[in-house]
């Protein structure tokens, strides 16, 4: 006892770390072997490639005809062509799906199979279970997003024959990073629901409910509310019109999807100068040119931070619940 007293804290710290590392490795392997991952990868790849293919074809035809030959590489990601939506709108739409697919049963699935209590009976810290699962999920997302991003970039170069500039490369890289944070949010939310709800079906439905609410109903509700508080008519003053629009804009930003879409738009569209309202006077004297990367980044910095923050909020709540939860077989 006398000897171990000094050694134990050190040893337990080391074991905590190894517990996390081993859980992380196992989760990663599980994901990579699962059919679910293959399905997600398949859907993302198909939609991504088809949108790029369509956009690329449109761009090739347009090159030379129009005056705007700048940022052709970025337009690969943002252009929608006919019936095929753009790559960025696909990603914004599929983000929740990826998070959901990877995380909706992460804790309650183990609980239902009875393997959670077996895991918890081992000398590992409780938090390393959720940390390991989340980190493995984020790794999978990052792998998918980057591989897809690079593949699409390569396809774009082959199709258009135009190599990206450094500015464009930075923008694309930041965009991919942003996409990872966005999908991670949905992963964190799914994992939170998998802790809160005992049934995997319930947690999956809850994520779908939040997804639908944020992407459809929140916007409708905000419109109703804003029009009720600041009704618009032919005789409305400028003040009312502005208040109405501002309220819609700010409340819509509650939704991570809005944050992500705004940030994406600004990043991949160097012409976007502001996400708020600009009066005619403010525009006088402005040179109609593209913003450099650093300035675009400055505009969306709050969006970036917000996305990271909501990730952390989800994770904190998961933490609080999971650390005190009773684990019954």
């Amino acid at each position: 006892m006398i000897f171990t007293a000094g050694i134990l804290p050190e040893r337990s710290e080391k074991m905590n770390k190894s517990g996390l590392w081993i859980l992380y490795k196992k989760e990663l392997a599980d994901h990579l072997h699962s059919k679910r991952f293959l399905i997600v990868l398949f859907i993302i790849a198909i939609t991504g490639l088809s949108s790029i293919f369509a956009a690329g074809k449109g761009i090739v035809e347009a090159i030379g005809k129009q005056e705007s030959d700048t940022f052709i590489f970025l337009r690969l990601f943002t252009t929608s062509s006919g019936s095929v939506p753009s790559f960025i709108s696909f990603m914004s739409f599929l983000g929740p799906f990826v998070g959901l697919a990877l995380g909706f049963d992460s804790i309650n699935g183990e609980r239902n199979r009875g393997s959670l209590s077996r895991l918890m009976a081992q000398p590992i810290a409780r938090d390393s279970i959720i940390n390991g699962k989340f980190l493995a999920g984020v790794t999978i997302i990052a792998l998918m997003v980057f591989v897809l991003g690079i593949a699409i970039g390569a396809l774009g170069i082959i199709m258009t024959g135009v190599p990206p500039t450094f500015d464009e490369l930075f923008r694309i890289f930041t965009y991919l990073l942003l996409t990872i944070f966005y999908m991670s949010f949905w992963l964190a939310l799914s994992q939170l629901f998998s802790i809160l709800f005992k049934q995997t079906a319930t947690s999956a439905l809850a994520v779908v409910a939040v997804w639908l609410f944020l992407s459809i109903f929140l916007g409708l509700l905000i419109n109703v509310l804003a029009d009720f508080l600041y009704p618009l008519s032919n005789s409305s003053t400028l003040d009312i019109v502005l208040k109405n629009s501002k309220m819609k804009l700010y409340l819509n930003r509650i939704s991570p999807a809005t944050l992500y879409n705004e940030a994406t738009l600004t990043l991949l569209n160097p012409g976007v100068r502001s996400l708020g309202f600009i009066s005619q006077e403010q525009l006088i004297g402005a040179i109609p040119s593209a913003l450099p990367f650093s300035q675009s980044l400055m505009i969306i910095w709050p969006h970036f931070i917000s996305l990271i923050a909501i990730n952390m909020i989800c994770f904190t709540i998961s933490y609080i619940y999971f650390m005190r939860q009773e684990i019954r077989a």
Binding site: E110, R113, G114, S115, L116, S117, R118, A121, A329
Partner: peptide, 11 residues
């Protein structure tokens, strides 16, 4: 301590 729950769950 080794603990075997009543419905032991393996992967």
């Amino acid at each position: 301590v080794g603990y075997l729950p009543d419905h032991v769950g393996f992967y």
